[in-house]
Simulated assay, not measured.
Amino acid sequence: MASSLPLLALRAFVEVGRLGSIKAAASALNVTSGAVSQQIRLLEDRVGVTLFTRERQGLRLAEAGASVYPSLLLAFEQIEKAAQTLGEIKVRQTLTVSTVATFAASWLVPRLGRFTQRYPNIEVRIEATSTTVDMHRGRVDVALRHGLGIYPGLNIMRLMAPVLIPVACPGLVTESAELKEPRDCLNYPLLHDSDRADWPLWLAAHNVAKDQRAERGTAFEDDFLLIRAAEAGQGLALVPLEYAQTEIAAGRLVQVLNKPWPARFAYYVVTKQDAMQRPEVKAFVDWVMEEAQNTLP
């Protein structure tokens, strides 16, 4: 029998029981007093018992009504809470951002709290990978990529160009060491990125003659590993300033020469052509461009 009881009548019963008045319950439910009275009569007829006793001050729960009122009140509170959750889900938006692990750890993630404070209804999922993602078929909404900016068929915005600086652990280069000019770096083991191009280009940019030593040394696929190797005293590393700031501030690395040099590659914001029409994508792109602008010296 319980499964056949009308939901509207049960709701009317709960409101009358809570407020003790047909009129007050009708106001809470945004219906007429006659409609509430009709639902109460319908429910009493269906269950075959009296649920309320009529008094001068209003209605009071009868024994049968009082026995089920707490459970029904809790049930409708849970329904209301669930409905509210559904409403929040409707306005909550999820954004998937892909970038390389080093950039995520050193630059993006430390700043991400400012985005969530500004846009609490946008949930950001960070995917840290060096693998090229298919923006056309995959689930990635925004990619922050390090390269030459050649991404056919996609919307591209230049985010920032890293400045490379030579760093080492404090114990590798002492005050008495002969490291005063860029050419002096060739007297130390050099740590490279995966294509071994940065050191030769950096040295050439500072008028150092071509030298085979510039291409020798251990190479690392990820800048994070490159920085860890430098911290361990394995050689000099040429890394983006943004990546090494924390280690320099903590004294784990030192900048061995004040010879910054722009990297060949820049960071780009990459999206599908029509992605900026989505409010959550536009909000993130505008924010990350703003953060990059504030990063510039």
Rank of each mutant, 00 (worst) to 15 (best):
M1A: 11
A2M: 14
L5N: 02
P6S: 12
A9Y: 07
L10Y: 01
L10G: 02
V14K: 01
R18N: 05
R18W: 08
K23P: 00
A24K: 14
V31R: 08
Q38I: 04
I40D: 06
L42G: 06
R46V: 08
V47W: 04
G48H: 07
V49H: 11
F52C: 02
F52H: 06
T53I: 08
E55I: 00
R56D: 02
Q57R: 13
V68M: 13
P70T: 04
P70M: 06
S71Y: 12
A75T: 12
Q78I: 09
K81N: 13
A83W: 03
A83I: 04
Q84R: 12
T85V: 15
T85C: 10
L86I: 10
L86E: 11
G87L: 02
G87S: 03
I89K: 13
I89T: 05
R92E: 11
Q93G: 05
Q93E: 12
Q93V: 01
T94N: 14
T94D: 13
T94I: 14
T96P: 02
S98I: 00
F103C: 00
W107N: 03
F115T: 00
Q117L: 15
R118G: 01
N121S: 11
E123V: 12
I126Y: 02
A128K: 10
T129N: 10
T129I: 08
S130D: 12
T132I: 14
V133A: 10
D134Y: 08
R137A: 15
L144G: 01
G149C: 00
Y151M: 02
Y151K: 07
Y151I: 03
I156V: 15
I156P: 01
I156K: 13
M157E: 15
R158Q: 13
M160W: 09
L164A: 10
P166I: 07
C169M: 11
P170Y: 11
S176H: 14
A177G: 08
A177F: 05
K180I: 06
E181Y: 10
E181S: 09
L186I: 05
L186E: 07
Y188L: 12
L191N: 08
H192G: 09
R196K: 15
R196I: 12
W199K: 04
W202E: 02
A204F: 09
N207A: 15
D211C: 09
E215V: 14
R216K: 14
T218K: 15
A219T: 04
L226T: 01
A229L: 13
G233F: 06
L236E: 07
A237F: 07
A237Q: 06
A237I: 04
L238A: 06
V239E: 04
A244R: 03
R252L: 15
L253M: 02
Q255K: 13
V256W: 02
L257S: 14
P262W: 06
F265N: 14
A266V: 00
Y268V: 01
V270I: 13
Q273A: 15
D274P: 00
D274G: 05
A275Y: 09
Q277Y: 02
P279T: 09
K282G: 04
A283Y: 10
V288W: 01
M289R: 06
Q293T: 11
Q293M: 11
P297C: 05
